[in-house]
Design a protein around this nucleic acid. Structure first.
Lengths: 142, 142
DNA sequence: TTCTTGACTTAGAATCATTCTAATTTTAAA
DNA sequence: TTTAAAATTAGAATGATTCTAAGTCAAGAA
């Protein structure tokens, strides 16, 4: 979904589109690197010197609850966020700590609404390993 | 894999089977509820009053690195651990914070060693939603 | 426009989870 | 036994997230 479309959805009764919320969503739109909260905060702080970390957290929670962004819990102890909400897999390299998007066809859960009587709201298919770049680095060092 | 089998594997050169490590592994064997670090610590503290949280963390890391247990990062901000290392899905209920085991047949990643040039070491297929019990509670309150 | 009310933002404190440190204890091997 | 390496311990330090209370802003009513 485009940025304008998402922003428009926020400007309805019950929710306010503030410059901070605009800035966070725009940052995620432009940075598809699955940034951490700290990265988002640090970058926005340059533009908006008074922006608070609490606002970053509140806004990310707000955007998540409106289904506009996804939370990623692939790395222990810290949150990352993703502008893309269409179902896709994430690959985490435990060497360089990068998160890669991966497309996997034929997931049997893709269209399911329920499993074992539980209501499915979101899929978080994570893959852990060593990424192609780090594999190459290792080869080079031989 | 049985508990004895896992314990035996630890008693080889390069690794020591201490009573603390024994206790942590045994706790996970007996408690398949995907406990948090705090839960493990709190419970073991009753048996071994001097056991340290650092030991819990060290031991969990040690057992994980030996492939005997799995780390679960399904809930933001805290680690959980699983005695079962055979591939299976986890369902997290964001109402009651329980983690359920779920079997999903036909995962296209099941046998894959590589994807997009990245080396796959571990799959963490997480599902988020509302569990059957919490759905029932909601119905009851109507 | 001005007023009012509720929603949002802010800075910093508080909390919670995890890691680090340095001292002590335990273990395995000589 | 003795010794050296490995493991454990208590508590401090760090890092991430949440909370708090005060101040600011925005949208609708008068």
């Amino acid at each position: 979904m485009g940025l304008k479309e998402k922003l428009a959805g926020l400007n309805k009764k019950g929710s306010t589109l503030t410059i901070q919320r605009n800035a966070v969503l725009e940052y995620l739109y432009e940075n598809r690197t699955h940034p951490t909260v700290e990265e988002i905060y640090h970058s926005l702080k340059e533009k908006f010197s008074t922006i608070s970390k609490a606002t970053i957290y509140n806004t990310l929670e707000f955007l998540k609850n409106h289904g506009l962004i996804h939370e990623i819990t692939i790395e222990k102890g810290k949150l990352r966020f993703d502008y893309e909400v269409k179902p896709h897999h994430h690959f985490f390299c435990h060497k360089c700590k990068h998160v890669y998007d991966v497309d996997v066809e034929g997931c049997p859960l893709a269209e399911k609404k329920m499993i074992d009587g539980h209501k499915i709201e979101e899929l978080r298919p994570y893959i852990i390993g060593i990424c192609s770049k780090c594999l190459q680095k290792k080869k080079d060092s031989w």
